[in-house]
Amino acid sequence: MVNKYDCPIRYALDIIGGRWNILILWNIIRFENIRYGELKKRIPEVSHKVLSQQLKELENNGIINRIEYSQIPPKVEYSLTEKGKTLIPLVELIN
């Protein structure tokens, strides 16, 4: 059986290949820490459901951190992990 990730390009595309992932990552790179509402404002075409799904996927893949503050109203910020920071040159090339 061939390893699905025998090619680094295939791995990168699986991680960031979602329709909105590049825009999400670009905004997190630009602002370092960004709140959910700010992301939604900057990418108005994406639905709340899809944005939430893509953020969870990026978090599960170890690309972004989700920091939840216990306060009212709730506050959640997203930032890049060390692994996510390795994608900065790739995202900047696309820009």
Rank of each mutant, 00 (worst) to 15 (best):
D14W: 02
L93H: 12
M1D: 06
N61V: 01
R19K: 15
L90W: 10
R35H: 11
Q53C: 01
G37Y: 08
W26G: 06
N61D: 10
H48Q: 14
L80Y: 06
A12P: 00
R19I: 12
E57F: 10
E59G: 12
V50S: 11
I9E: 12
Y11T: 02
P73R: 03
S47L: 04
N27V: 04
D14C: 01
I63S: 07
I63K: 05
L13I: 12
D14Q: 08
N60G: 11
Y5L: 06
W26F: 12
I34M: 08
L80C: 06
I29V: 09
E59N: 15
R42P: 02
G37M: 02
I15G: 01
R35F: 00
E45D: 14
S79Y: 08
L39D: 11
N27W: 06
W26V: 00
H48M: 00
S47R: 07
V91F: 04
K56C: 03
E68A: 09
Q53D: 13
Q71M: 14
L55H: 02
G18M: 09
P73M: 06
V76Q: 03
Y11D: 05
I43R: 06
K40A: 11
W26E: 14
G84R: 05
Q54M: 08
K4D: 10
I67K: 13
I67A: 04
I94D: 05
P74N: 10
V2L: 07
S47W: 05
S52E: 13
G84P: 04
W20S: 13
N21E: 15
A12L: 11
V76W: 01
I28Y: 09
D6E: 14
N95Q: 13
D14R: 07
N33M: 10
K40E: 07
E68L: 04
D14V: 01
L58Q: 11
I94K: 09
G17I: 10
K56L: 11
T86I: 08
T81S: 11
L58V: 09
K49Y: 14
E82T: 06
G62E: 08
C7V: 03
R66S: 10
W20P: 00
I88A: 04
S79T: 14
T81N: 07
